[in-house]
Design a protein around this nucleic acid. Sequence first.
DNA 1: AAGTGGTCTAGACCACTAC
DNA 2: TAGTGGTCTAGACCACTTA
Lengths: 226, 226
Amino acid sequence: MIRTKSLSLHDQILADIKGNILNGSWAPGLRIPFEMELADSYGVSRATMNKVLTQLTQAGFLERRRKLGTVVCRPRIQSAVLEITDIEKQITGLGLAYSYALLTRRLVKDELSLSCLHFADTIPFCAEERVIQLKTVPEAALVDFAQTPPGTWLLAHMPWSTARHVISALNASSALAKKLNIKLGAACLAIERTTELNGQTLTHAHIIYPGDKYQMVAQFSPHLEG
Amino acid sequence: MIRTKSLSLHDQILADIKGNILNGSWAPGLRIPFEMELADSYGVSRATMNKVLTQLTQAGFLERRRKLGTVVCRPRIQSAVLEITDIEKQITGLGLAYSYALLTRRLVKDELSLSCLHFADTIPFCAEERVIQLKTVPEAALVDFAQTPPGTWLLAHMPWSTARHVISALNASSALAKKLNIKLGAACLAIERTTELNGQTLTHAHIIYPGDKYQMVAQFSPHLEG
DNA sequence: AAGTGGTCTAGACCACTAC
DNA sequence: TAGTGGTCTAGACCACTTA
């Protein structure tokens, strides 16, 4: 094992074992040495070794069973980490100038409905339809969202929440085509995001990107750097 | 704190603290008690408390700095876990019958190019264009892939690897429309998957779903169950 | 200089499960 | 019943950062 300086013991060992799995030295199905044996061979305590093996197990590389031992898992191209960035950051990250326009704002019952556009260098980047539940976010009724995009405002004013994203493809309707300045029927990428807090819906966003201007990238990298 | 039986101490404490953050009791920016104080208040050792706080930090809920203390992070709707399942499992998971057809198979230089279709109840579910690098997977040259889909075969015969997914929307070309039995220009969801092993490209897959038949779901659930 | 988190150890007991 | 992983503790030393 190559010992890199200024890296903790367990991180070095983790990188080493992960390397064995990723380069094929430790094939899926292989029963690897017992925790105590590994601890001895690396010259560390069982606690440190356990920390490493626990992390690798949580990351999906290993499967452990008492008495049976530790086995290398079959790869499952199954869960990938999808980066869903704030729209403003998406655009400025591309080196473009960001701007924003509120199209409509309607307040019906306990729902605030917003329709807005996000621009990259004055070109429409995506269209957003947003519904905010005022029962859960009453303060939103007092904001006009003329300057601040609802996503940005909500991110700053909400506590932690969970979100569910549905990604789909659709053909641009005439209204959408006008908004985004694209051809009627052009393929678009749609992201529907439902944000919840304590099981209650906070907000619902429908964000539509022209298919030729945007694509999402998901990296399968089992929750571990390296 | 509610103590659920048959759950480890650190898991109980983790659920408790995560609850405080998710329900807003501990707002973003709040400096929470020091590790020792929390350990005392929960009646556990510092090591156990550290395990909990380390996990929450890795999950993006907390930020810790020596001397300064531990602070609740701002939420970042940023990384979501995207489930990218095997196509056969996708279809059978919907309660439909899976079948598969190989359309073309060409061997040029060190690349094996395949074109195939996946069916759900005899209806085209998605089209797959696949290129396998024979330099990295020489065994693939001997397989005819008439019965076994390349994705399934590769998953079973490859060691661990990393993958990068690019998700986009496109209008169906005439050739694609015929294959999938959809209208010309219909919006489709396209997934481009590049699989690497030790930095070398293993295989490249281009999978296209009719936009009205399939959508992807990504759940933002910061690497922790609950 | 002091205080906090980061890491590591040695030892212990328990729970699960193959035998 | 024996062996392995799961968990927890008490104590220690170090590293980083603020004061």
